[in-house]
Design a protein around this nucleic acid. Structure first.
Length: 148
DNA sequence: GCCAACGTTGGC
DNA sequence: GCCAACGTTGGC
């Protein structure tokens, strides 16, 4: 079982939105490195839900992967902001996962805290200039985060 | 609002 | 295939 971190701008989709929906397809990722991580995810993996572009920044909850290798439907939807005209039905370009809500942390683990407790080598999200929206989290780091 | 740090695009 | 220009992400 692996651990991941997924970023979302709460104005677009927040942990409260996921609590309300209970589950969602993690659509709209249009970066190949992030997609490759999404393709590595397996059912049962846990993800830390991170709020970006907001205040306070940080990890706000936990999610679980409940379906892997999901074809992102928005790539074929010309009305979607994530529409990709270059993607063809026979060989889709963008894959993702379906996730479900596990919990919203009573206290956000702020980026400031993450920077204090983990090095950029341990945790990609604290690395300066990092723009990946989906990234792996080392088991030791994940366990420390879950014990907080 | 600024801008660093990328990723992507397209001319050559 | 190189790389300059451009666009986006996301912290500050």
């Amino acid at each position: 079982m692996a651990y991941w971190l997924i970023k979302s701008e709460p104005d677009v989709y927040s942990i409260d939105d996921l609590r309300r929906d209970r589950q969602t397809i993690w659509d709209g990722v249009r970066n190949y490195q992030a997609r490759n991580f999404l393709r590595q995810m397996q059912v049962g993996d846990l993800g830390f839900f991170y709020h970006s572009n907001t205040s306070p920044l940080g990890i706000v909850g936990l999610v679980k992967v409940i379906e892997s290798d999901v074809i992102d439907p928005t790539q074929f939807d010309s009305n979607s902001p994530y529409y990709d005209p270059k993607s063809i039905l026979e060989s889709p370009r963008w894959f993702t996962v379906k996730i479900e809500f596990v919990e919203a942390f009573t206290q956000i683990i702020t980026l400031e805290t993450l920077k204090r407790e983990f090095s950029p080598e341990q945790l990609l999200v604290v690395r300066k200039g990092n723009r990946l929206s989906v990234m792996p989290v080392e088991i030791e780091v994940a366990q420390k985060l879950l014990l907080r």
